[in-house]
Simulated scan of single mutants.
Amino acid sequence: MNETIDATDLRILQILIQDAKRSNKEIGEEVHLTGQAVGARVRKLQDMGVIEGYTVKWNPERIGLGLQAFVTVFLNSGDKHPAFRAFVAAREDIVEVHRVSGEGCYLMQVQTGSTEQLGELLEALLPLGNYRVNLSIGVEKSRK
């Protein structure tokens, strides 16, 4: 794809990053384009893979998922990676997983409602390897 991104595209992207619910008309008023022209630029950014999707900010504590932990996973052996990926795919309490360099093999972000639920996840993880757990005790807002 030979399309380029200009300053207006970048401004539209920045507005959407701040509030993806803004209408094309509202964005157009800020960037001096019609809503239809903004829509065309947003579709172009989607087609180019710059915009991959949209998300919702939510408060997990409001639905009983107030315990957040970061688990460093140390797999028992190199052949455990496929089993670990299957384990992750089957768990709804695992929010995100990163394969990492340095200490450990993976870093998991886990969201549960209680320490008992976290303990159950960790118990199920043991056949694959060891782990280290860090509990989140607060979140700082980013500048995004």
Rank of each mutant, 00 (worst) to 15 (best):
Q18T: 06
I63F: 13
Q36R: 12
K57W: 07
K57Q: 12
K25A: 13
Q36A: 15
D47S: 14
G64E: 08
E30I: 12
A40E: 15
K80S: 07
T72D: 03
H81N: 13
G49Y: 11
V38N: 11
I51T: 08
G78C: 05
K44P: 12
I17Q: 15
V56E: 11
E30C: 05
D79P: 05
R11D: 15
L33S: 10
L10C: 07
G64D: 05
R22P: 01
Q18H: 12
G39Q: 09
L75C: 05
H81Q: 14
K44G: 12
A69W: 00
V56A: 12
A69V: 01
V50P: 06
P82D: 10
D19M: 06
V31T: 09
G66M: 01
S77M: 07
V38P: 12
I17C: 14
L67R: 03
D47H: 13
L45C: 08
L75W: 04
N76Y: 12
K57E: 14
D47F: 03
G39E: 07
E52R: 15
R43L: 14
G39Y: 08
K21M: 02
A20L: 02
K57L: 11
P60K: 02
T55Y: 13
V50E: 04
V31K: 08
G35I: 07
N76H: 15
E30T: 11
V38R: 13
T72Y: 01
F70Y: 11
F74C: 06
I63S: 06
H81T: 15
V73N: 02
V50Y: 09
E30H: 09
L16Y: 08
I63G: 04
G53F: 00
L16W: 05
V71W: 00
F74I: 08
L10H: 10
I27A: 06
G35T: 10
I17G: 09
G64W: 02
R41Q: 10
